[in-house]
Each structure stands twice: as structure tokens, then as C-alpha cells.
Design a protein around this nucleic acid. Structure first.
Lengths: 333, 333
DNA sequence: CTGAAAGCGCTAACAC
DNA sequence: GTGTTAGCGCTTTCAG
């Protein structure tokens, strides 16, 4: 009993068993029609008997392609990336491609290595919300290509982005239509680009139109962060709160509830992202829905196009969809 | 401008540029100390100049291992699998292994092909809650090994399972201690094994101890399902409801709230799974926490052991942890 | 229609 | 220490 007995049969073994050449086995296994039925039958029988299945690694080396792509995300516990992953997985899978996944766990310094490492074992990469500085990212492009970016734009690289500014604009327009003129922003993590974009949009809107006064409260990205600033929100004098994201909004909702502040009676609250739970809170949360599955799906389209030699390096923006629910109402202020 | 210009340099090119043999380049790239500093320097310089990085595919073929493992799940949108994925990804990543992921999208007939396909490009497989019939699964074991099963047991295969019965037992014990003697079960999807296990545990407990009366209400697995049966729950005469899972419990909570039934004042409600939101509902949900990250983490330990030749085919059961929160209280009935 | 042989890029004995 | 050489398992011209 040799412990090193073949893990699995290889093409040579099958060829010998079937009394044909390896080339013929290869042809049969790949469904080439140019093999005599009798031979094909013999090969298939031998393959079955030996539990033979071609090594995809050897195949990849010979063909120069792996039929595998990689997705690099900062954080797998973030619903945004979970849905991108799912959309990408389904779309690529439907086209016969496998998916390699790497999580940087928000460690910027690991992102580059992970991406390069992954790229070397597959045919292309999708980089979701990379935290890498632009200079580093640009330097990496040639080594990562074919590449698709999500929530990041770079000249010459196909990308898919969420137009956060447009989402904020819709939320603010909604609040203004309800009579709100004093709005407090529960800010996300300062280093985050998406916080930057939301804040810039708010600043722009308030300065430009002079239609409302903007108050900022440093907050964060979690339920706890939102919960912690409920007091500040209540005493801010604002009649509406725009939260960095849904989680923060939930925390605020919960905190306000505990303080006896009624939503939307005394203050309206909006989230951002429309995570699965937004529909189920009391009151249900008004939010801006990011088309997460679509992002994954389209990322595959863009990557697939490059893999088949139809590169089109355009940048697409997805406008979030405003979802008005029970957490916003007319101000009585 | 040859469009087929080398995608990236290979070892031969670097060897020539550095004026050494390919073996030396290989040694340097793998950090073997047995190379003269001067040569190593030349190699590294050449590699840098050519943007050289070893092909992992060729390396895998030569070494006979890929440093990659695969995870097969039925549904990536299920929090259970998301967390298993995350735990596995982090643990395997920390040990320098990549993760290939495949989703069967609940199509039993695809599971086998996906698993086999994945296995051929990596060193081992984790199969999470496979829906495959046992006979098929047993047949596949030799071809998938090294293999780890999650929520499924098979002789000779290392596996990790959640002891749902124990979780139910803890929840019931908790309710009994609060004085509840009439409990309604909001049943999950009938074909689901995990519903079967929970129901069996409940039946066993109620028949065995005679400590409480069990009422069954057909429900489902979603928020909407739970919401829809709130009326039936309220009129059942039960003082406590055990929901199939947290989502159903949330729906019930919401429906009861709308009906003006106070929780836990008039009726106590328990969930199962402790999904991230369970802490954040009003009232927070009493539930049984499934150690999802641990499952992923331990799956890697088990797989890693096999990869390094220390196979131990034991089956571990994880007892869910009872989390008492605000949705359960002493009965006034 | 089938087989022989070269090669994908890398590693690992084995000599020098 | 370093180079030579023979694979790893598969695909693919190119003859026949």
C-alpha cells in the first residue's frame, strides 16, 4: 500500500488503458468531434473506470488561461461586498468561470499583495472599493489587467461606481419637500471616500441652494456609533437627520426611541444603502438603494468583455434609488 | 506592436537577463538562502526590471499543490454561509492559502459538478450544508478528499455541525423557567433538515417531560412568513412563541406590534441563529447563537490538518449559545 | 482520424 | 553555490 499511490489518474494512464495516444484522450475529454466513435467509447470507459478527470492546473498552464477570476474586497462582512460577491459569482459561474476571493480585512497594506497574488492564478481581477492610494493603484494596473474597478475610477480602467452624490441629492430633495430646513449629518469614518462624497454633496447642496442649514456630527459606520450620537442629534435643533449609512440610522433610531424622541414625529431619519433590514425596522427606514447585485453582475460583463478582447474602458455610474418609508415625515418645526 | 506580446515575463527571460540559470532564479524567488548575495542581487534587479512574478499556475503544477481550497455553499445570501465564508477566508488566508468559492444557488443537481470542478483546481474542499443525498455524497468523498463537511455527517469525513436540538432545548428550558406552559412553534420550510431537527427536539421535549403543551403553526423562513402568522400566534392561547429562525421572529414581532400585542408583556418570542440584527430590534431578540465564524475557522483547521497529513475524521458538534434578551419574560398567564 | 513530439513555466534531484 | 536535466499533466501543431 504505497501511501503515494496516485491521487487521481492522469491522461497517460487513461491513454494506456484505452490503447490510444494522450492526444486522443485529450480530444475526447474536450468533446472534439473528430474522434472515431469506437475509440471515443473506449476512452470514456477507461476514464470512468479510473475515475479520471483532467487536471485543471495542467490544463490552465497549457492553455494559458484558468477560467477563474478574482474578487478583492476590503471586508466580507459588509453587505455591500457580500452582494457584489454574489452577483459576480452567479454571473461568472453562468459563463463557466470560477471565482477566487480575497479579503484584505481593511488592511490597506495587504491589498496590493493580495491582488497581485490572486491575479497570478487567474485571468482577471475585480477590485471592490480599493483603499489603496491612487498612485499605487495606477502602478498596479498593468500587472492586474484585465481589471475592473468598483467604486473607484481610473483613466483607462473599466469601472462601476455608485453615484453617492446623486443619492444624497435625492434624499435631501425629499427632506426639503417635507419642509425640513435644518439637517444634521451623522458622518461616517473620516478616511472613507464614500463618507467624503456624501459630505461633499451635502455641503454643496447647502451652500449652493441656501435652502437648508447643515450641521455635522462626527459619528462612524456602526449601529453603536449611531446609537451614541442620538443625544447630540436630539439636541441639535435639526428636524431631520441624514445618516452616513443604514446601520448608523438604525442606531440613531434606537437611541432616539430610548430618549423618547418620536420618529418621524419630532425628527425624520434617513439611511443609505437599503440593507436588507431597512424595510423591517420600526419605523421602516427611508434610504437610498444601492444596486449591489447589479454591480457584481456588471463587473463580470466588463471583465468578460476584456477577456474576449473587447475592452471598453468606460466608467459607469449607478444612481441609487430613493426609497421613501416611514422614518421620514413632514416637519412640524 | 505585437498584440500577443508577453503578458508578463517568465523565469527564462529573467534568467537570461541576470545571466544565471533558471534554477537560480527559482531559488532566489523562493528565498532559498543558498545563493551568493551578488547573484541574488542580480536576479532581483532583473526581476524588478521585467516586472517578473512567478506563475502560480506553473508553480502549482510543478509542486503538485495549489495552496488554494474551495468552499461550496448552497446560498451566498444566507448569513450563515457568509460568516462561514468569512471565517474560512481569514483562517486559510492567515496560513497562506487562497479561497475558491462556488455557490450552487440551491440547485442540488449542480452541487456535485461544482464540487468536483472546484476540487480539480485546488487542494481540498469544504462542503457547507450540502443538499446532496447521502448516497451521492458518499460516492464523491474519495474524489473530493481532503474534505470537510459542515452541518452534515458521514463516517470517515471530518465534520462540523450545529446541535440544533441542544439549542432548542436551551430555549425551551429558558421559557419553562419563566413559567410558560403553552408554547407555539412557528415552523420553517417542511423540507428543511434544520426545521425537522428543531421540530423533533420540541416534540421530544413536550412529550417526554409533559412540562408544556406544544402548538404548531405552519410558517416559513422569512420576515413576511412570520409577519403573516402573528394573528394565529396571538389567538393560539400560547404565552410564548418559538420561531424557526430570527427572521421569522422579527416578522412575528412586527406583526404582534401592529396587533397591539405587547412583547414580552403578553407573549414571549424567541428566534434562532442570532443574526446580526437580533440585538437591534425592539425588544432585542432572545435567540440561540450559532457560532458561524467558528465554523469557518475550524473548518480550516480540519482541512489544514488533512493537508499536512494529520487526518482525524472526528465529528464535532457545536452547541448554540443561549442569548437572553428583551423579547422573553415571565408569563402573567 | 490518430499519434509523435514540443512546449506551457516552474521545481528539484543530481552533478559539477 | 550553481547549472543541467527531467519532469508536473495537458494541449496542439504537424505528419502520416
Amino acid at each position: 500500500m504505497d501511501p503515494n499511490a496516485r491521487v487521481s489518474a492522469n491522461i497517460k494512464l487513461v491513454a494506456e488503458a484505452a490503447g490510444v495516444s494522450r492526444a486522443t484522450v485529450s480530444r475526447v475529454m474536450n468533446g472534439r468531434a473528430t474522434v472515431a466513435p469506437e475509440l471515443a467509447e473506449r476512452v470514456l470507459t477507461a476514464a470512468r473506470a479510473l475515475d479520471y478527470a483532467p487536471s485543471q492546473v495542467a490544463r490552465s498552464l497549457a492553455l494559458g488561461r484558468t477560467a477563474t477570476i478574482a474578487l478583492i474586497v476590503p471586508d466580507l462582512s459588509n453587505p455591500m461586498f457580500q452582494d457584489v460577491l454574489r452577483g459576480l459569482s452567479l454571473a461568472a459561474g453562468a459563463d463557466g468561470h470560477r471565482l477566487l476571493i480575497a479579503e484584505s480585512n481593511e488592511q490597506v497594506e495587504d491589498e496590493e499583495v493580495l491582488a497581485l497574488e490572486a491575479r497570478r492564478r487567474c485571468d482577471g481581477v475585480v477590485l471592490a472599493s480599493p483603499r489603496l492610494p491612487t498612485a499605487d493603484l495606477e502602478r498596479l494596473v498593468p500587472q492586474l489587467a484585465p481589471l475592473v474597478l468598483i467604486n473607484r475610477k481610473l483613466p483607462g480602467v473599466p469601472s462601476l461606481s455608485v453615484d453617492y452624490a446623486a443619492g444624497i441629492q435625492d434624499l435631501v430633495a425629499h427632506l426639503l419637500s417635507l419642509g425640513h430646513r435644518r439637517i444634521v449629518y451623522l458622518a461616517g469614518p473620516p478616511p472613507s471616500t464614500s463618507n467624503r462624497e456624501r459630505l461633499d454633496a451635502l455641503l454643496h447642496l447647502s451652500e449652493q441652494g441656501n435652502a437648508f442649514e447643515l450641521i455635522q456630527v462626527a459619528c462612524g459606520a456602526t449601529f453603536e456609533n449611531g446609537h451614541a450620537v442620538a443625544g447630540a442629534v436630539a439636541s441639535s435643533g435639526a428636524t431631520a437627520a441624514v445618516a452616513y449609512n443604514d446601520m448608523v440610522a438604525f442606531g440613531a433610531l434606537s437611541g432616539l426611541h430610548e430618549l423618547g424622541v418620536s420618529v418621524p414625529g419630532q425628527i425624520s431619519v434617513t439611511g443609505f444603502d437599503d440593507i436588507p433590514f431597512a424595510r423591517f425596522t420600526t419605523p421602516p427606514l427611508t434610504s437610498a438603494a444601492v444596486p449591489r447585485n447589479t454591480l457584481g453582475n456588471q463587473a463580470w460583463r466588463l471583465l468578460h468583455a476584456q477577456l474576449t478582447g473587447q475592452g471598453a474602458a468606460d466608467a459607469t455610474d449607478f444612481r441609487p434609488r430613493l426609497l421613501v418609508r416611514g422614518s421620514t415625515g413632514r416637519t412640524n418645526g
